[in-house]
């Protein structure tokens, strides 16, 4: 039953995104908003009915989950890239809150520092540098929106079709988790008491225990990416010849004594 409700919801959500997509003729933003909010409400209601046991954190979960979906929809449909970036910041904040609800504080703060603090600011920088005057067709006309929505929500639907098979009762975080639940051969299960002592410490022990090689590898990856990014963007483009006589380099201008 659940998957079929989800399929309907996804279809409606796809329709909402299609309506909100920038089109030369103008998008039906209001209808899309109503439809989208309706779909989100339906989704959250479904979650609350089927998955979630009553808990004081649930309110925050629903609030920020709904906000995250709404903001994500706005990122992909807003015709102005700067707004897309701002809405993306909102998505990041919501996801960070959701991570905090899952007791992953370190990951949440790292997400904010890296995404909101560095990546997104860089995006904003490029958006501003490459800013076109007024709305251009790049932003006002989507490319095959119908197909894109169809493909994406079919994938989401495929995930949703299997959602019922996830155990509705979360496994308690204890040392008594049977090894069979996880196929990870490395022993990374932490007792609840260690979780209590702080997510940061626990995650540090994992990162620099079993995953030390991966940490080193990601460091190398970052280094390679840095070198690559510098190599790509350092290239200097010559300016067009203005026809004025050019002096050889080193002889440009008149020398003037200081002060």
């Amino acid at each position: 039953m659940i998957p079929y409700i989800l399929y309907v919801l996804f279809a409606l959500g796809g329709a909402a995104i299609y309506l909100a997509m920038p089109k030369p003729s103008g998008s039906q933003r209001r209808a899309a908003l109503v439809l989208g909010v309706g779909v989100i409400a339906g989704l959250l209601a479904l979650m609350s009915m089927h998955f979630v046991a009553p808990n004081s954190n649930n309110f925050f979960f629903y609030m920020f989950a709904g906000l995250a979906i709404l903001a994500a929809g706005r990122v992909v449909t807003h015709p102005v890239p700067t707004y897309s970036a701002v809405y993306f910041a909102l998505v990041i904040l919501c996801v960070a809150v959701l991570l905090v609800i899952q007791r992953a504080e370190f990951l949440a703060v790292a997400l904010i520092i890296i995404y909101a603090g560095a990546i997104l600011v860089t995006y904003a920088f490029v958006i501003m540098l490459a800013q076109q005057s007024g709305a251009v067709s790049t932003d006002t006309r989507a490319r095959e929106p119908l197909m894109a929505i169809l493909v994406s929500f079919v994938i989401a639907g495929a995930i949703a079709g299997k959602i019922e098979q996830i155990d509705a009762v979360p496994v308690k975080m204890t040392a008594q988790v049977p090894q069979a639940v996880t196929d990870v051969p490395i022993e990374t299960t932490l007792p609840a008491t260690e979780m209590e002592s702080g997510h940061t410490k626990a995650i540090g022990e994992i990162m620099f225990g079993p995953y030390l090689v991966v940490v080193e590898l990601s460091g190398i990856l970052l280094l390679i990416a840095m070198v690559g990014a510098i190599a790509i963007s350092r290239k200097q483009v010559p300016i067009e010849d203005t026809g004025e006589p050019k002096l050889p380099v080193g002889q440009i201008g008149r020398e003037v004594p200081p002060f």
Binding site: E244, P245, I252, G253, E255, V256, P257, P258, F259
Partner: peptide
Amino acid sequence: MISDADIILIKEPK
């Protein structure tokens, strides 16, 4: 566009 001849170079004090 500033032409090359209009550029003033000020020697930096040592």
